[in-house]
Design a protein around this nucleic acid. Structure first.
Lengths: 149, 149
DNA sequence: GACTCGTACCTGTTCGATCAGCTATCACTG
DNA sequence: CAGTGATAGCTGATCGAACAGGTACGAGTC
C-alpha cells in the first residue's frame, strides 16, 4: 500500500502542477487562493492551520503570491504581530479557471471508478488520514520526554 | 477526493520522514536503497524508471547516498555513458531497519481498515494511479501537435 | 570518417517542505 | 511597571521534485 500511496501522490501532484501552470501558479499556491476566496481575508497562521502547512512555507508562498499580484497584505488592526492576507480583485480573474482545474483533477482521479467505488475510496482515504495523523503526531512521542535538560 | 489525496500524501510523507530520520535517510532515498537491495546493482536510468522519478533528482540523490556511504558507483563495462549504482556492504547494516520502518508505515496506514477494506483501498489506489498516469502523460497532448515549425 | 539522432548523466534554477534561530508583540503575573 | 512565556512572522539552510540546457557517448547512415 505504501508504494501505491507514494505513486498516487506523485502523479496527483504532477498532474496538478501541469494543469496549474496554465494560470501561472504552482501546487500549494492554489490552495491558499481557494482558502482566501472561500473564507475571506485572514492571518497567515489561519492559513497555515486550515491548510495543514508550515509557517515558514506560508511566509514564502504568500510572498510569491503577493509578488505575482494575487494577494495583498495589510497589518491587522487588532494585533500588531499579525498581517492580514487578502485576495486581490485581480485574482478573481483566475478564480474560475482554478476551480475548473480542480474539477478536472477530480474527474481525472475518479475516472475508472464507479460512484460507489469513489465513495468507498474516499472513506478509505479519510480513515487512512486519521490513522496517519495519529501515528505522525502522537506516535513519535515514544515517551513524551522532550530531551531532558 | 482531491483534498483527501493531498492530505494523505502529506501525512504519509511526513510520517515516513519522521521514521527515516532514525537511520539518517530522507524520503525517496530509502526507495532507491530498497530498489538496489531487491534488484541488485543497476544504472541510474533503471532506478529512475522503476521509481518513477526524475533523472536530475536521481543524480543528486545518488550523490548524497554515495557521500553518506550507502551506495557506490562504478562505470558500466559495456556502456561508457552509464554508471552502475550498487549498495555498499555497509548499507546492509540499515537494511533491516528500513524494512522495519516500511512495515511500520504500512501498519500505521492500514490501521483502522479491515483486511477486506485494505484490499479494496489498494485496488482503488491502483485504479486511480492508472487514471492519473493516463491524464498526466497523454492528457496534455491536447492535439498531439508539437508546435508546428 | 563526418553527420545525425537518441541515450545517460550532470548542472543551474525554481519551488514546496521542514528544522532551527531570531525579532516583535501580546497576555499574564508579581 | 518589569519579567516571563506564548504567539506571529521572517530568514537561513537543507532536501526532494521538476524543467531547461548542456556534455559525452553509442549506433546507424551516407
Amino acid at each position: 500500500m505504501n508504494h501505491a500511496i507514494v505513486r498516487v501522490a506523485r502523479l496527483h501532484r504532477m498532474l496538478a502542477a501541469q494543469l496549474l501552470r496554465r494560470v501561472g501558479l504552482h501546487p500549494a499556491q492554489e490552495l491558499v487562493m481557494m482558502q482566501l476566496w472561500d473564507y475571506g481575508p485572514q492571518r497567515q497562521v489561519d492559513l497555515v492551520r486550515m491548510l495543514g502547512s508550515d509557517a515558514a512555507t506560508m511566509t514564502r508562498t504568500v510572498k510569491r503570491l503577493e509578488h505575482a499580484g494575487f494577494v495583498r497584505r495589510k497589518p491587522s488592526p487588532t494585533d500588531k504581530r499579525a498581517t492580514i492576507i487578502e485576495a486581490t480583485p485581480a485574482s478573481q480573474a483566475v478564480r474560475r479557471q482554478i476551480e475548473d482545474i480542480w474539477a478536472e483533477l477530480e474527474t481525472a482521479t475518479a475516472a475508472g471508478l464507479t460512484p460507489d467505488q469513489q465513495a468507498e475510496a474516499l472513506k478509505a482515504l479519510q480513515q487512512i488520514e486519521n490513522s496517519l495523523a495519529r501515528a505522525a503526531f502522537s506516535g513519535p512521542h515514544q515517551d513524551c520526554r522532550p530531551d531532558g535538560p
